[in-house]
Design a protein around this nucleic acid. Sequence first.
DNA 1: CCAAAAGTGTTGATCTTACACCCATGG
DNA 2: CCATGGGTGTAAGATCAACACTTTTGG
Lengths: 237, 237
Amino acid sequence: MSQQSSVSAQARLAVSTVIFALSPDTGAAAPSLRLPLVRRLREPGAGRWALPGGWLPVDEGLDEAAARTLHETTGLAPNYLEQLYTFGAPDRSPGERVVSVVYFALVHSDEVERAVSDENVCWFDEDHLPELAFDHRDIIDYALLRLRTKLEYSRIAHEFLGETFTMAELRGVHEAVLRKRVDPANFRRTIEASGTLVDTGERLAGTPHRPPALYRFDTSADPVTPDRILPLSRMSS
Amino acid sequence: MSQQSSVSAQARLAVSTVIFALSPDTGAAAPSLRLPLVRRLREPGAGRWALPGGWLPVDEGLDEAAARTLHETTGLAPNYLEQLYTFGAPDRSPGERVVSVVYFALVHSDEVERAVSDENVCWFDEDHLPELAFDHRDIIDYALLRLRTKLEYSRIAHEFLGETFTMAELRGVHEAVLRKRVDPANFRRTIEASGTLVDTGERLAGTPHRPPALYRFDTSADPVTPDRILPLSRMSS
DNA sequence: CCAAAAGTGTTGATCTTACACCCATGG
DNA sequence: CCATGGGTGTAAGATCAACACTTTTGG
């Protein structure tokens, strides 16, 4: 056996999370995807922006570590959390070998208001990202690909929204994430046919037009859709 | 910061692989999925069967470590290798904390013949698995789910076969993995429409009936792009 | 010729897509 | 009443599933 059993010759294990939210809908402009980044204070990569995360404690589960570190660094409570991929190229961090188990999270826009936002934690639009530390740019690109792919076959759009929402809000999530217009009539029928929404019977008042129905996501009738995962090697730009 | 920066308080990183192959087609019986397991020689879990794998060396990439360890333990050269998931529950290995980056691999049947097979390395049918060490049974179940899901929207069935193959052989892969009959006529049209196969012009002689055409997978016209995944679903009867 | 697998044609059912049109509300 | 987004109807086109049918080989 060629492997070193000396503990000092090990890679260090980190957990990071790509957090997505929609920018608050400010009037006519279509909402866009945003994500929070933290400024690195130490070397390597000091001064650059990076994904929120931290080292994995020896007695903590991966999911728990992701939820904890993202909350500690951003103050956010995610609505949805899923393991994305584990990145472990030997040269991805200069100096020491770091293997990062990366998650992606979805939070709703209201959470963004309550989130920490200072000099060292800042939200960025998906297509105005700053220069990132390590391979974090590749990671975000992969997370975006996975989010977009998954939105089309799974029902996770509602995780961007609150407890109740209108059909137009849900459609807005699809349009913002997929970056394309979606026919309202056909979208409504597709969603209703999936049986994942429940009409609360209430209506959203105060709009300048006909008040839309409010829906709730039906957690009981959740059709478990296995992941459609694209290999990293197939990523295009 | 609550995290220990002492190196001794870290989890150990392992890499394991779920290797799939089809059992050689012995006459009338439909081929089934098989996978090799290795017998554990040390505690914890000594005597039980487990996935092939090993510790991650500090200077080796994850993909490389998966390819190396699966070759060292089974003698196999995989046709396809993709990261599956990282398992890291704190109690999944008694005694010490182990985080396993798990891959899944596809090899073709011919490889199986050349593979190591002795008292400590043995092939098992997917529905006749022995008692497994740690959480390896859960891992295999997840790998099977992923393989079946992926076969329907991606083009990986040919990875179970050799360089050239007949349409019936490719259909046989789908039938074996998905465990259901597939209509030959509709399957042919679906595959041909995807544009992923090239007719070699040759035919397989020696059959008792009309000699079938031999095809090759077209690596250049790779249709698996993030934006448009060709639906290969619903070709059953 | 016969049996059986290879390969093609066809048809009704279902799903998708585009868009016309009515409904309900604030102003 | 009007403008506008909410919500329904509908018909053409694409796709799917089932199965009849023709082709080609070994024996």
